[in-house]
Amino acid sequence: MTTGNHHDNSRDDEREHEQSLDALARAWQSTHREEPPADVDLAVLREARAAVGKKSARAWPWTRSWTGWLSTGAVAAVAITVLINLQDEAPAPVKLPPAAPPPAPVTATPRASRDTAGEDRARASEETQLAPVEARRKAEPAENISMFKTEPMADAIMEERAEAADAAPEREMEQVVLPPAEWLERIVGMQAEGDPGWQEELARFRARWPDYPLPAGLAEAAEDSGS
């Protein structure tokens, strides 16, 4: 009986609450009906449109399975192509000139190194041809150079440069620049000593100084020998 009363009371209470809530809702509806500012409306709608402007993930689920792989493959292909092109464009000299080739407007080759004079001239010519390339390489930032060349090539270049740097002082010592008078004295001395190389040295002198007067004995000997 008590339980039944409790249930009845509870039901009445519930009904009363519902009625109160309905009355409250009606009263609430009649209160001011404020609305959001117009600029906020526009901002929200603009964002909503922009969000679906780029395709919705739910709209195209079937593309998701392969578009990811396709884009990854495309990026990889472009990267490999760029790498190959960069390697092709990078200069790959096998032989590099020494760091500082000596200027030699007039050189007199000592006897001991006369046999290698031709090689020196050839090397000087090669250096002249390679100079712009070397200058360009020096102008390049270090990271660019390392990006373009492969490791074995870099090792070869470094070895060549080291050897050339070692040989440079010796060549400078061999090649002595002499004034014409001293050069002629040296040639006369060679002739007097019976050195057969005097004629070749004289020919080099005349090529460099064609109008310089020769000593009488040297001129006659030269005519006799036909140089």
């Binding site: 009906r33 404020e34 609305e35 959001p36 409306d41 929200v44 709608l45 909503a48 449109r49 679906v52 402007g53 395709k55 919705s56 739910r58 709209a59």
Partner: peptide, 21 residues
């Protein structure tokens, strides 16, 4: 709207803008 129809959102927004605000 989730499937990409922006106009559906506009209807929905118009319905709920007042109560939510």
């Amino acid at each position: 709207y989730a499937a990409g129809d922006a106009r559906a959102f506009e209807v929905l927004y118009d319905r709920w803008r007042g109560p939510l605000y």
